[in-house]
């Protein structure tokens, strides 16, 4: 309720600002608001570089599933990514503003130091849009490549490295099951911020027990001889989630366990970590203005 009042005050302030009058008063109102405004989340600067990326999606060769190609990948431009996952409290502010839907009831955790979980891809993008509006900086979900690069040494290559010819499909199913079982976190309860420590790039809690949405679509690719792509098909109804092992989730799934298949291991929780776009000239100019009340 309190938040709603403040939101309408903010709107009033905007109108006043537009009218060009009572400027000091505007500043005063805006000055009271920041406690409820989304503070600029702490980010980590990921320096440009290159790494070997196991491509996401499924790959077929001679009609048999094979490991995805390992691709030397250059990250030309550095980027800023949230040091911590979006907190339950920050997500709740978006809900209070009416811009986000409440997370799945069974996943509601409270507090600044708990990650938001029980959120779908839709929820994650809604949150990014809200935060963008709130802070004036542009926030978005990372791509799978950005996520994997930021995860650094915690990024798990999901190749199975079987040397069979693929004529026994069960070998891959069993190997995948063993591999994911081995990587699964024994305790799926979300933990307080920092519980899983930081990686070498100072990103906290990445590849803990909360998987993070990326913008990358599921794709199935047929490889020609060599590693050339013969043909491929995207399904953007399913997005890649980054975590202990790469997952693929329908965009509306909020509980990874429900979205899992009958005979596999599912992500424990689904959460959000956003990338901040470098400020545009306009945004930098806006920041000089006294009130970011819009």
């Amino acid at each position: 309720m309190k938040l709603k009042v403040q939101a309408s005050m903010a709107i009033a302030a905007t109108m006043l600002a537009a009218a060009g009058a009572f400027a000091p008063q505007v500043v005063e109102i805006a000055g009271k608001a920041p406690a409820q405004m989304a503070a600029e989340p702490e980010t980590v600067a990921i320096a440009p570089g290159s790494f070997d990326l196991r491509l996401p999606g499924e790959f077929l060769k001679n009609d048999y599933p094979v490991d995805a190609p390992l691709q030397a990948t250059k990250v030309q431009r550095g980027f800023a990514i949230m040091k911590y996952q979006v907190s339950a409290a920050d997500y709740a502010r978006c809900v209070a503003d009416g811009a986000c839907e409440a997370p799945e009831a069974s996943a509601i955790t409270a507090g600044d130091d708990m990650p938001a979980t029980g959120v779908s891809y839709r929820d994650a993008t809604a949150y990014a849009a809200w935060l963008t509006e709130r802070t004036g900086a542009v926030w978005r979900l990372p791509t799978d490549t950005e996520w994997a690069f930021a995860a650094g040494e915690r990024y798990a290559d999901d190749a199975l490295l079987l040397d069979s010819n693929g004529s026994n499909p069960a070998e891959r199913w069993l190997a995948r099951y063993r591999s994911e079982t081995g990587k699964s976190e024994p305790d799926p309860e979300p933990k307080t911020r920092g519980h899983f420590g930081t990686n070498a790039k100072s990103v906290a809690d990445i590849a803990g027990n909360v998987w993070e949405w990326t913008t990358t679509c599921y794709t199935r690719t047929r490889l020609a001889d060599g590693a050339a792509k013969a043909e491929s098909l995207d399904n953007c109804g399913v997005r890649v989630v980054g975590g202990k092992h790469r997952g693929y989730m329908s965009y509306f799934i909020r509980d990874g366990k429900s979205g899992g298949c009958a005979a596999g291991m599912a992500p424990d929780n689904l959460g959000i970590r956003l990338v901040r776009e470098p400020d545009s000239l306009l945004a930098r100019f806006r920041k000089l203005l006294p009130a970011k009340v819009a």
């Binding site: 026994n168 499909p169 069960a170 069993l174 099951y177 009958a262 005979a263 596999g264």
Partner: peptide
Amino acid sequence: LQPGVYAYV
């Protein structure tokens, strides 16, 4: 009769 990961439900 076949290998694989079966779900018994």
